[in-house]
Amino acid sequence: RQGFVPAAYVKKLDSGTGKELVLALYDYQEKSPREVTMKKGDILTLLNSTNKDWWKVEVN
């Protein structure tokens, strides 16, 4: 499932696989259909980080 999360809630990881991955630093509950819920410690695939406030991710 793809959607947006606050950029301040995730940290980029060095995956070494060519995929950009991020680590969820905090729990986040989606507040609109365009967002996704994540739990602290989740590893997500980063799809787009051009917006400084909201990053598009895919929940694996």
Results as ranks from 00 to 15, higher is better:
R1C: 08
R1T: 07
Q2C: 11
Q2G: 06
Q2W: 10
Q2N: 08
Q2I: 13
Q2K: 10
G3Q: 02
G3Y: 04
G3P: 01
G3K: 03
G3M: 06
G3V: 04
F4G: 01
F4N: 04
F4E: 03
F4D: 03
V5C: 04
V5T: 01
V5Q: 01
V5M: 01
V5H: 00
P6K: 04
P6Q: 02
P6T: 02
P6Y: 04
A7R: 12
A7C: 07
A7P: 04
A7H: 03
A8C: 13
A8I: 11
Y9A: 10
Y9W: 07
Y9K: 06
Y9G: 05
Y9P: 00
V10G: 01
V10S: 01
V10C: 14
V10Y: 01
V10H: 01
V10T: 04
V10D: 01
K11I: 14
K11D: 05
K11V: 15
K12T: 07
K12C: 08
K12G: 04
K12P: 08
L13D: 03
L13M: 10
L13I: 15
D14Q: 11
D14Y: 14
D14W: 13
D14A: 13
D14F: 14
D14R: 12
S15G: 13
S15M: 14
S15Y: 13
S15T: 15
S15C: 15
S15R: 11
S15A: 11
G16Q: 13
G16M: 13
G16T: 14
G16D: 15
G16W: 11
G16F: 12
T17K: 12
T17Y: 14
T17Q: 14
T17C: 15
G18E: 14
G18L: 10
G18F: 10
G18R: 10
G18S: 11
G18P: 09
G18T: 11
G18M: 10
G18C: 14
K19N: 11
K19A: 11
K19D: 09
K19I: 13
E20C: 15
E20P: 15
E20R: 15
E20W: 12
E20D: 13
E20Y: 11
E20M: 13
L21S: 07
L21W: 10
L21M: 12
V22Y: 10
V22H: 04
V22Q: 01
V22A: 10
L23S: 04
L23N: 02
L23C: 09
A24I: 02
A24D: 00
L25V: 07
L25K: 06
L25Y: 03
L25T: 05
L25P: 00
L25D: 01
L25H: 02
Y26W: 10
Y26G: 05
Y26H: 11
Y26L: 10
D27H: 06
D27L: 02
D27W: 04
D27C: 06
Y28V: 02
Y28L: 01
Y28K: 00
Q29N: 13
Q29S: 11
Q29V: 15
Q29M: 12
E30I: 07
E30A: 15
E30R: 14
K31F: 06
K31C: 10
K31D: 06
K31N: 09
K31S: 09
S32W: 06
S32I: 04
S32N: 12
P33L: 09
P33W: 10
P33G: 08
P33N: 10
P33Y: 09
P33R: 08
R34D: 12
R34P: 05
R34F: 13
R34C: 15
R34E: 12
R34S: 13
R34Y: 14
E35K: 05
E35H: 07
E35F: 07
E35G: 10
E35L: 05
V36F: 13
V36Y: 05
V36I: 15
V36T: 06
V36E: 01
V36S: 02
T37S: 15
T37G: 09
T37P: 08
T37D: 04
T37I: 03
T37A: 07
M38V: 09
M38I: 14
M38F: 09
M38R: 00
M38W: 02
K39D: 04
K39W: 11
K39I: 07
K39Q: 09
K39E: 06
K39P: 01
K39H: 12
K40M: 08
K40R: 12
K40T: 07
K40I: 06
G41S: 03
G41E: 02
G41T: 02
G41I: 01
G41P: 00
D42T: 06
D42G: 04
D42L: 04
D42Y: 05
D42A: 07
D42M: 12
D42Q: 15
D42C: 06
I43E: 03
I43Q: 04
I43T: 06
I43A: 02
I43D: 00
I43M: 06
L44C: 08
L44A: 07
L44N: 02
L44V: 05
T45S: 08
T45F: 13
T45H: 11
T45R: 14
T45D: 05
T45M: 11
T45C: 09
L46D: 00
L46I: 05
L46R: 01
L46C: 05
L46M: 03
L47R: 04
L47W: 04
L47N: 02
L47T: 04
N48C: 11
N48E: 14
N48K: 07
N48S: 13
N48H: 07
S49M: 10
S49H: 10
S49L: 04
S49N: 09
S49I: 07
T50E: 14
T50R: 11
T50H: 10
N51F: 08
N51T: 06
N51G: 09
K52T: 11
K52S: 12
K52P: 15
K52F: 09
K52R: 13
K52A: 12
K52I: 11
D53C: 15
D53F: 15
D53I: 15
D53K: 15
W54P: 00
W54Y: 06
W54E: 04
W54F: 06
W54T: 02
W55R: 01
W55L: 04
W55E: 01
W55G: 00
K56R: 11
K56V: 13
K56W: 15
V57K: 00
V57H: 00
V57Y: 01
V57M: 01
V57C: 02
E58G: 07
E58R: 10
E58W: 06
E58S: 08
V59Q: 14
V59G: 07
V59A: 12
V59C: 10
N60G: 14
N60Y: 14
N60D: 12
N60I: 14
N60A: 13
